[in-house]
Amino acid sequence: MPGPHHVEPGGEPLVLPLAPTLTLTKVSVGPMDNNAYLLRTPDAALLVDAAAEPERLLAVTGADLATVVTTHRHGDHWQALAAVAGATGAALVCGRPDVDAIATGAWVEGLVGVWDGDVVAVGSHRLEVIGLVGHTPGSVALAWTGEDGPTHLFTGDGLFPGGPGKTAGPPEFASLLDDLEAKVFARFGDDTVVHPGHGDGTTLGAERPHLAEWRARGW
């Protein structure tokens, strides 16, 4: 049974109103069911992960796209980055420790590195950058909190329904889970909506009871 905010690979985008001046569009692209998320205000747009299929992404974003945030260095999350940047002139942002890897892999210039405490704007709205070290050294999540309603977290491959994203070994897993506990679960409420890099969404309330289980299993 499909979970929250389900979209079919290659299917129609899902559009969600987050605030009177902010909408979220989710689309699945590429062979790995990568989620790309467009946040749009009346005068600006921001894309989270130009993962694949640039023609489909550009049909969703339009040529007025202002910013693309890449959540981490793995290639399935930036296959369309150069094409989308070339068509729109959008500013390019990623986690500071992943800048060189993304710039080299995607053949893009001008990447701006961000980390904890930084914000990325889309119109009058601000998204807080949260570094989640473990899936990659420079993985980031973005947190948007409106005046009413829950926080929305765009977690890349840092957090999915059922646990953290894949890591290379026990030290990386411990780092990622430590960051998730301290920077995400300790700060945001159970109604916080999680928008991961692949597949369906979840909430922190649905995942919180399993933190000890994840640490015990080690992945």
Rank of each mutant, 00 (worst) to 15 (best):
T88Y: 15
A80I: 14
K183G: 09
G199P: 08
R40D: 12
D148P: 00
A101M: 06
D157C: 09
P164N: 07
P42R: 08
G89A: 13
V120N: 10
C94H: 07
T202G: 08
P137A: 14
L65M: 13
P209C: 02
A186N: 02
E147V: 12
L159A: 03
A216E: 13
E12I: 01
A91K: 15
S28V: 14
G156K: 07
E12F: 05
P13G: 05
P196S: 12
P97L: 12
T23I: 11
A19G: 03
G113W: 09
D76W: 11
L127Q: 02
G95W: 15
L176N: 01
P54G: 02
V133K: 06
L18H: 12
H72I: 00
T145Q: 15
T61L: 11
A66P: 14
A143S: 12
R215P: 07
V193M: 12
G158T: 01
W107N: 13
G10A: 10
L176D: 01
L127E: 01
S175L: 10
T71P: 04
T104W: 04
H5M: 13
H125D: 08
A66S: 15
P161Y: 02
V99P: 10
L24V: 08
R56A: 10
T41D: 11
L81D: 12
T21S: 14
L16N: 06
R96D: 15
V119H: 13
D76N: 15
A83K: 11
H210K: 01
G110W: 03
G75F: 12
E213C: 02
T155R: 02
E109G: 12
V112M: 03
F188T: 00
E109Y: 00
T70N: 13
W219L: 03
L65G: 12
T88V: 11
D118N: 13
T151A: 15
V193P: 00
A45C: 07
T21M: 03
A216P: 05
T145E: 15
T167E: 03
G134M: 01
